[in-house]
């Protein structure tokens, strides 16, 4: 479906002669939403620095209408999780997400928030999609501001395909607190990293607790 266009016998003539334009409502709503994203910057580590550069004059996110970063989630509709999310911080991140009014979108910026990244650790959430739905993932450690701008453009494409009226009238699935593309289930990477080199898990009880009772390494004799 196209853009705003004048209606009348002669469409190329002066629009003011007709005084109105016609368009599809869902197109108009999506057009408004995608071009006025208000990001909530959740800068948790070095990605936050790149996020600040992106909002600044050099990369100039204002070109895409998303420069109005607010530090209260009540005024935002785009949550940018920029950096390493720990399990201790996860409660705060989820609270911020819940405080944002619908409709809302989430960008996982950087490998840490996308998958845990290099922090394959007990303290770090292995991908923020364990706790909230993510729309766009941005790789990089940290990603350049260009990459995040690209993510915002991709998110705009995604918003274009939404069906806001259908949701309102019930013909499209409703926005639930868990809508989105994230897996929303904690999936530790046991399969890939529990090897003979894992020198920490040599205690039978600890192995039992993580569901891997088979010894991978000879016990150290006192």
């Amino acid at each position: 479906m196209g853009s705003l266009k004048p209606v009348g016998p002669d469409q190329a003539s002066d629009q003011s002669a007709f005084g109105f334009v016609a368009t599809r409502t869902d197109w108009l709503i999506n057009w408004g939403r995608k071009n006025s994203l208000w990001p909530m910057p959740l800068g948790l580590s070095c990605c936050g620095i790149e996020l600040m550069a992106m909002l600044g004059p050099k990369f100039d996110l204002a070109r895409f209408g998303a420069e109005a970063a607010r530090f209260t989630p009540r005024q935002c509709d785009l949550l940018v999780i920029a950096g390493t999310l720990t399990w201790k911080m996860a409660q705060a991140a989820r609270t911020i997400y819940d405080q944002m009014p619908d409709p809302k979108w989430v960008i996982a910026m950087g490998v840490c928030s996308s998958s845990g990244g290099m922090y394959d650790s007990y303290a770090v959430v292995q991908g923020v999609d364990s706790i909230l739905p993510v729309d766009v993932y941005v790789p990089g450690c940290p990603p350049r501001p260009d990459a995040v701008i690209d993510a915002i453009l991709k998110l705009q494409k995604k918003i274009e395909r939404e069906d806001p009226l259908g949701r309102l009238l019930g013909s499209a699935p409703p926005i639930g607190s868990e809508s989105g593309s994230g897996k929303l289930q904690f999936q530790p990477n046991f399969g890939h990293h529990k090897s003979g080199l894992d020198k920490h898990a040599h205690d039978p009880k600890a192995r039992q607790a993580i569901g891997d009772p088979a010894p991978r390494r000879t016990e150290v004799k006192p």
């Binding site: 409660q91 530790p188 894992d198 920490h200 192995r207």
Partner: peptide
């Protein structure tokens, strides 16, 4: 570590992926 956490991570018997790291959350 958060209050209410049950383990001591630098003990050698603690696996580096943790024991139910998402439990408190």
């Amino acid at each position: 570590m958060p209050e209410g956490y049950e383990h001591h991570p630098l003990r050698k018997e603690f696996p580096h992926h943790g024991i139910e790291p998402d439990k408190l959350y």
